[in-house]
């Protein structure tokens, strides 16, 4: 029996910064950088938000929408590269805040931007083997780029939570497949505040090779072709990469547009492809087929072949805030506020 998505929820912080404001700080034409990346603005967490708080908000939303009792959640996986503690699992904080403790398996996942979808795959295994009734997979990040670095224009904050189960699904996960190699395109050594990346190396041998290979592998496993899908969602570090990967796999811009949210909120790392999937589910109809391929530097891609069930129609009545609504509700901040919120300043005594 296939497992599927029983519910989902998301969280996007209230604040945004635009590329112009970032460029102005570093003597660059931010508008041109933004245009080249296809990013109009990026989300900025409030001072009191982090990967744990956003994970809690997204998960509470998912539980509420499906009316699931938190004690029925048997496993929580929190995927992030910005866990608030180096040692102390974010999943314990989330579990307690959801009242899903103590009969609970909880673990933090780490695989750059695909740690959340890795949690979805783990959840599927536990649910299908009937070790747990429901499992919760979360992608959450308050991503950081070093001041002045190109990553600063896109590194954003957000979270998405998916509850995986066998019954009452709103979408069936027909197949999942991963493509993994040792490719050093982006990394952060222990104790370092900001990540490093391999410049142009992040494109062809990293993102495109993994995403496209994983997509093709999924086609062959599912016996499908691009035209069988109404929607395709890819990891979206900027607008260019997912558009190009989609094209390489044979998808049209129309199949991609609903899941492409990076233009409005930037790259939310572990949450990026999952918020894209949430946006698609906000608008999908029973029978629609969705292809999802995440990407995590280091490197790997997780592919999912998903079919929307009739359950989506009653589920949708419980949605109080769509991804489009989260996106359109914001306030712009200046570079100083953004730097303060992301603790880029070293304070007295630190």
């Amino acid at each position: 029996m296939n497992s599927g998505i029983v519910s989902y929820g998301a969280y996007i912080p209230f604040y945004r910064i635009d590329p112009e404001s970032i460029g102005r700080q570093w003597g660059r034409n931010g508008a041109d950088v933004g245009k080249a990346l296809g990013v109009k603005m990026k989300s900025v967490p409030a001072q009191d938000e982090d990967a744990a708080t956003m994970a809690v908000e997204a998960s509470r939303c998912a539980l509420k929408r499906a009316g699931i009792h938190p004690q029925d959640i048997g496993a929580i996986f929190v995927g992030s590269e910005s866990h608030p503690y180096a040692v102390k699992p974010t999943a314990t904080i989330v579990g307690e805040a959801l009242e899903a403790t103590p009969g609970l398996m909880a673990a933090d996942m780490e695989f750059a931007c695909k740690a959340g979808t890795a949690g979805m795959q783990n959840s599927m295994g536990l649910v299908m083997s009937k070790m747990v009734k429901y499992a919760l997979a979360i992608g959450t990040d308050t991503a950081q780029g070093a001041p002045g670095n190109a990553l600063e224009y896109t590194a954003a904050a957000g979270a998405a939570a998916f509850i995986i189960g066998l019954e009452n699904t709103i979408a069936t996960i027909n197949h999942t497949v991963s493509f993994t190699t040792d490719t050093p395109d982006f990394w952060r050594r222990g104790g370092m505040k900001y990540p490093s990346h391999g410049g142009r190396f992040t494109g062809q041998p990293a993102y495109f090779r993994h995403v496209v290979s994983c997509g093709k592998e999924l086609f062959s496993l599912a016996g499908t072709a691009p035209e069988d899908y109404q929607f395709a969602v890819f990891h979206q570090p900027n607008s260019k990469f997912p558009s190009k990967a989609g094209k390489m796999l044979g998808f049209s811009q129309q199949q991609l547009s609903e899941g492409l949210i990076v233009k409005e909120i930037g790259n939310t790392y572990s949450a990026a492809s999952m918020i894209g999937l949430a946006s698609v589910l906000d608008n999908a109809n029973p029978g629609d087929r969705i292809l999802l391929v995440s990407y995590g530097s280091g490197a790997g891609a997780d592919g999912f072949d998903i079919t929307v069930t009739p359950g989506i129609e009653t589920f949708r009545k419980g949605i109080n805030k769509t991804i489009r609504e989260w996106i359109s509700n914001y306030q712009l901040v200046d570079y100083g506020t953004y730097a303060k919120n992301l603790k880029k300043y070293k304070m007295e005594g630190e």
Binding site: F14, D48, A52, T53, E57, Y85, E350
Partner: peptide
């Protein structure tokens, strides 16, 4: 109510999470 960081015990101590509130119609 929302779930936020309320305070922390310095840069190496524990983080104190808890409730805050936001206006209904702004968020």
């Amino acid at each position: 109510s929302v779930f936020r960081r309320v305070s922390e015990d310095g840069v190496s101590g524990t983080i104190h999470y808890g409730y805050k509130f936001v206006l209904d119609h702004s968020r």
